[in-house]
Design a protein around this nucleic acid. Structure first.
Length: 793
RNA sequence: GCCGAAGUGGCGGAAUUGGUAGACGCGCUGGACUCAAAAUCCAGUGGGGCGAAAGUCCCGUGUGGGUUCGAUUCCCACCUUCGGCACCA
């Protein structure tokens, strides 16, 4: 027996698998229908310099599932790609020189080397990268389909503006209201932006949660993010302007208490009021100052506002109530106007107090009934709500309505390193899509991709100026690029057909492999990537590009790997290089350790203490399996080791397959090895050794393969997953726990076929029980068959 | 403020449907091997009381209550930590 040399073993088997194309899967011929396929996917990495332990956890989890499902007879598609557009590479290029492309491509090469070093079972024929024109051509193609459907559009909207860097910042670049890079305070600025109409799918995104097997907390986060509120839209008339102004409210039952009316500073009516009101200057000044405020300031500052001089008619009371402009009213939510009920709403109350406006109580909180509400007084709140809406509806003043918190997805970026948006602006025709056959619009070289107040592409005049595809007049290309979340909203379908140069993917191949059977990634993407991908698939489904409505059937979130209390991520430098760890202990040890450290869905603090214990386990496994392999191949039915092996098979299969937990199977195999180690030549030793090696293979595939050969077999990666034999699990005797009043007092060996009465008799006969009973009367005896007897005295 | 998750030895954690709390590992202690060390192997290891010992009793899963023959597990209240949302009408 040689000593365990992980480096040599791992190099050897990685070559064998690659030569055998062990983990590559071919696409089916036309006409084939799905038959036992499994699509396993982890969120694709951003190609920063190197992998960190968080990646190792993510991809090792996926790897265990991949091996497990493969050996359970499924054809597993498990591809890999790179989210290679985006700000970090661009910022690195600005800081360190070089081109973002060179940076990500060298990073990709390094990451792929690290991934191969860890021995992950990946189909390397299907690699994609967001910045590859062969990929982003189809990102552009999909954008054009959304544009045709009216699902991509431009509108003016507030963005984060850094006055120092002269650029728009993505939300994730704003930290505590300041620019991540230069520290300048970020301003809100109104700019025209591209949006995807995700709000049109708000109800579908909520309803289709029923179709998918996701963690409840993730669905909850998405539900809160979508923020569906049921209520009513009520009309308040402003006679002087001859307009009906709609408001949204979730509390139509409080309408009798609406004593003033408030408009957002951005509300379109405000302009008219400025013109017609005697204190127009005051209103204009108020609007100007509140628009200059950051959203945060508007939320935290004391309530402010200005009276417009106009009055609105409360549709319930017919009272004329004053109309104010107040910046606690948000244009983005509801209708940008609200009926203020200071008696019931805390914010309206604070405003009324500040400006000495009348307050009316219309709900008796203790009784839960309406008061001072005309014919509705005395009615319970729940009944009053629909009754008032119906009554106002009859008078043409209201109707039931639903409002959402969800906003459309602003996806344009005034930055260089992203997918170009394939449209041309023409003075005659407006926004004109680039024809499909002219795609891709290649991201051109620019002299300087630092942000300078306009998109870097706008300074490449030669590229920018093109004839309008429709009328031929001189036009200009869109110089903004797409948010990288657009790339990742559909990448998982490209893996199904990565070489296709006629379409993003053939529908038959997407429908063959997808939806993804198991997706694994961080919960931090709950409201971003996971929402956008669902939206994209719903649209693609309506366009008949795919036959399904949800991209990710099952979802699992791995926990954060922290180091010294902060989370490891691409933007922080606190990383332990996994390949260095693999050089020290071997990839198998690294893989085992990251999964043994705790439950995979819980956050963990990274520490290298304990990795020695795993290395020790692997050396023990190596020695004990070799010792067992040298022993006789003896028939061993009924041997304790054989039963232990079958118990371990049952435990590991149930843990990985049903419970989706990954730390306890390792402990179970350790237990088996501990028992085997006590006597490696005992009856059943050989079977126990084979079982341990087979069960540990998804975690530590290299050493498992080597030991499988030592046991006289080959190609463990193709070996069917072991099945526990029920007959070996049955026990003839068991340890009967005897309790008195719920406290364990004795344990005795009992036979599995004893009657309940016999077990109770055994319990009563126990000396220790006798000592406890001390002559007391037994009132009740509870028997749990196969486990315990509880005597109640 | 609202919504959600979690709290178990010195440490990471286990206990799957209400049924033996602390599996497995780290660390630590003692021993074997060794000139010595490392590595390896063996034994012990929640806290406390009584006992020379074998043992035996009590306490113990964030805190306080409750349901139950029996609660880490279920219910109520509270504390702490973490995450999401937050002037959303």
């Amino acid at each position: 027996m040689d000593t365990y040399d992980p480096q040599a073993i791992e190099t050897k088997w990685q070559r064998v698998w690659e030569d055998a194309r062990a983990f590559y899967v071919d696409n089916p011929p036309p006409g084939a229908s799905p038959n036992g396929e499994y699509y396993m996917l982890e969120m694709l990495p951003y190609p920063s310099g190197h992998l960190h332990m968080g990646h190792v956890l993510n991809y090792t989890l996926g790897d265990v599932v991949t091996h497990f499902q493969r050996r359970n007879g499924l054809r597993v598609l498990r591809p890999m790609g790179y989210d290679s557009f985006g700000l970090p590479a661009e910022n690195a290029a600005i800081k360190e020189g070089g081109h973002p492309r060179e940076i990500v491509e060298s990073n990709i090469a390094n990451i792929e080397r690290q991934m191969r070093r860890l021995g992950w079972a990946i189909d390397w024929d299907r690699v994609i990268a967001a910045h590859d024109p062969a990929f982003y051509r189809w990102t552009q193609w999909l954008f054009l389909r959304f544009l045709e459907q009216g699902l991509a559009y431009r509108k003016e909207a507030p963005v984060n503006w850094c006055p120092n860097d002269q650029t728009v910042l993505a939300n994730e670049q704003v930290v505590d209201g300041k620019c991540e890079r230069c520290g300048a305070v970020v301003e809100a600025r109104k700019m025209e932006q591209w949006f995807f109409r995700i709000t049109a799918y708000a109800d579908a995104l909520l309803d289709d949660h029923d179709l998918i097997d996701w963690p409840e907390r993730t669905k909850t986060i998405q539900r809160n993010w979508i923020g569906r509120s049921e209520g009513a839209e009520l009309l308040f008339r402003i006679d002087e302007l001859d307009v009906d102004v709609p408001v949204f409210t979730t509390r139509p039952d409080t309408v009798f208490g609406a004593t003033f009316f408030a408009l957002a500073p951005e509300h379109p009516l405000v302009d008219t009021m400025v013109e017609r009101s005697p204190n127009g200057d005051q209103i204009r000044e108020y609007v100007r100052t509140s628009m200059a405020k950051r959203v945060e300031e508007r939320a935290t500052d004391e309530k402010s506002g200005v009276f417009t001089g106009f009055f609105a008619t409360n549709p319930a009371t017919d009272a004329r109530i004053p109309v104010w402009v107040a910046d606690y009213v948000l244009m983005e939510y509801g209708t940008g106007a609200l009926m203020a009920v200071p008696g019931q709403d805390e914010r309206d109350g604070a405003f009324a107090e500040r400006f000495e406006l009348p307050v009316t109580q219309v709900i008796d909180e203790e009784q839960g009934v309406l008061v001072d509400s005309a014919q509705f007084s005395g009615m319970p709140v729940d009944e009053g709500r629909p009754a008032i809406v119906e009554w106002l509806g009859d008078r043409g003043r209201g109707r039931p309505a639903v409002s959402f918190r969800l906003r459309d997805w602003g996806f344009s970026r005034q930055r260089y390193w992203g997918c170009p948006i394939p449209v041309v602006y023409c003075g005659e025709c407006g926004i004109v899509p680039v024809p499909d056959d002219e795609l891709p619009v290649i991201l051109p070289e620019v002299e300087d991709y630092r942000p300078k107040g306009k998109p870097p592409l706008a300074s490449n005049e030669e590229w920018l100026r093109v004839p309008c595809p429709r009328c031929g007049a001189e036009g200009t290309r869109e110089a903004e690029t797409m948010d990288t979340f657009v790339d990742s909203a559909w990448y998982f379908l490209r893996y199904c057909d990565p070489e296709n140069d006629q379409e993003p993917f053939a529908r038959r191949l997407a429908d063959f492999w997808a939806p993804i059977d198991q997706y694994i990634g961080g919960i931090d993407h709950a409201t971003g990537h996971l929402m956008y991908s669902r939206f994209f698939v719903k649209v693609m489904n309506e366009l008949e590009l795919v036959g399904f409505r949800e991209p990710f059937q099952r979802l699992f979130h791995q926990g954060w790997v922290r180091q010294g209390g902060t989370k490891m991520s691409k933007s922080r430098g606190n990383v332990t290089a996994p390949d260095e760890l693999a050089e020290m202990y071997g990839a198998d040890a690294v893989r085992l350790y990251i999964l043994f450290a705790g439950p995979a869905d819980q956050d963990m603090d990274w520490t290298e203490e304990g990795v020695e214990g795993i290395a020790r386990f692997l050396r023990r496994l190596w020695r004990i399996v070799h010792e067992a392999a040298a022993g006789d191949v003896a028939a061993a039915d009924g041997a304790s080791l054989v039963r232990k092996a079958h118990e371990t098979i049952a435990k590991v299969g149930d843990d990985i397959g049903r419970r989706f937990v990954f730390n306890t199977p390792i402990a179970a195999v350790m237990e088996l090895i501990n028992e085997l180690g006590r006597d490696p030549s005992a009856p059943g030793a050989r079977f126990a050794a084979e079982t341990a090696v087979s069960l540990i293979q998804p975690y530590a595939p290299h050493v498992a393969e080597e030991l499988w050969e030592a046991l006289g077999h080959s190609r463990l990666w193709e070996e069917p997953w072991p099945v526990a034999d029920e007959s070996h699990l049955r026990r003839e005797t068991f340890e009967l726990v005897i309790q008195v009043n719920g406290r364990v007092r004795d344990r005795v060996e009992a036979s599995a076929d004893e009657s309940e009465d016999a077990l109770v008799a055994r319990a009563k006969a126990s000396e220790r029980v006798q000592a406890q009973l001390d002559g007391k009367e037994i009132r009740q005896a509870i028997v749990v068959p196969g486990k315990l007897v509880n005597l109640v005295v």
